[in-house]
């Protein structure tokens, strides 16, 4: 049994909130550069240049790359041989978010109740997903999620008979309907299978994987590539002004499901697909 004090968890989450918002990850920067070469729309190319320049300013000046610094989604993989000491784990996580968003000059975008809409002024509470895993460490991932793209996400319970074609159709419909709203170029997380809520969780988890890394199952790896290709034939383009670069990457996660069901969730993210992780 290894002891981990809650203060270490708070400190780690605070730092991850800031880093995720300031530093665009390398896989996304690389994709920007690849698509800049391929983009044929003049305005589209200019917009990609602007977004690359924006990420440099954010990095150099430690400024958030986007003003929507998101709702903090925190994933914890807790080793079953860890004993957490010094306080309540959930409070420690929210304290990390509170400190990160306050000290890091990040926007406080959370309201305490979906209908009375009073801002909590410290961006808490976080959305927390716990998983118990073997080992004596904790892996913490902070993924701030902006709502311009979150609002364009969808979930549908398909029929088993709809099959892979049904899944593709639903993903393409969702992206097409979103159009310019989620600030294309976007990144698409797709969750297939499980139950209603599991598919949404899988879609969110899919956004944590680097976009240059394909699903380990060759069938889904190929589907990711096909979907990326088909999305980029829609012509929406950077910011929706027309062009090739509608999407920078599609990640799919799957899980077993019921004989009667084929749940599919499409979680759309903008280029600011932020996630930073640490193992303590």
């Amino acid at each position: 049994m290894r002891e981990i004090h809650v203060n270490q968890i708070t400190e780690t989450i605070k730092q991850l909130c800031m880093d995720a918002n300031y530093y665009l990850s390398e896989d996304i920067k690389n994709r920007f550069n690849e698509y800049k070469e391929k983009e044929t729309s003049k305005l589209g190319k200019e917009i990609l240049d602007i977004l690359i320049e924006n990420s440099k300013i954010a990095e150099n000046e430690k400024m958030p790359m986007c003003q929507d610094t998101g709702m903090a989604v925190v994933f914890l993989e807790i080793g079953q041989d860890v004993h957490i000491t010094g306080g309540n784990l959930e409070d420690a996580i929210n304290e990390g978010v509170r400190q990160g968003y306050t000290e890091g000059y990040l926007r406080k975008s959370v309201v305490r109740d979906p209908l009375d809409r009073i801002n909590t002024k410290d961006n808490t509470p976080a959305i927390i997903h716990y998983q118990i895993v073997p080992g004596d460490k904790i892996k913490i991932t902070v993924a701030p999620k902006g709502f311009g793209s979150e609002n364009m996400s969808k979930l549908k319970m398909l029929k088993p008979a709809d099959g892979v074609e049904g899944v593709k159709r639903f993903v393409l419909e969702t992206v097409k309907e979103a159009g310019p709203n989620p600030c294309p170029p976007i990144i698409v997380g797709v969750g297939i299978g499980g139950t209603f809520e599991k598919s949404a969780y899988l879609a969110k988890k899919a956004l944590l994987r680097k976009i240059d890394k394909r699903n380990e199952n060759p069938f889904y790896a190929k589907l990711e590539e096909e979907l990326l290709d088909e999305i980029n034939k829609l012509g929406i383009g950077p910011q929706g002004f027309g062009g090739l670069t509608t999407c920078l990457g599609v990640n799919i996660e799957v899980f077993a499901t019921h004989i009667a069901g084929l749940p599919v969730a499409v979680n759309i993210n903008c280029h600011a697909t932020r996630h930073k992780e640490a193992i303590i």
């Binding site: 003003q67 929507d68 000059y105 926007r107 311009g148 609002n151 989620p182």
Partner: peptide, 22 residues
Amino acid sequence: YVGPTPAKEGMPIGSAGPTTSY
């Protein structure tokens, strides 16, 4: 349509891109 991030000392504003208009 913008909700900027807080300004650091000496700056007029933080990050300030557009939000979705609909």
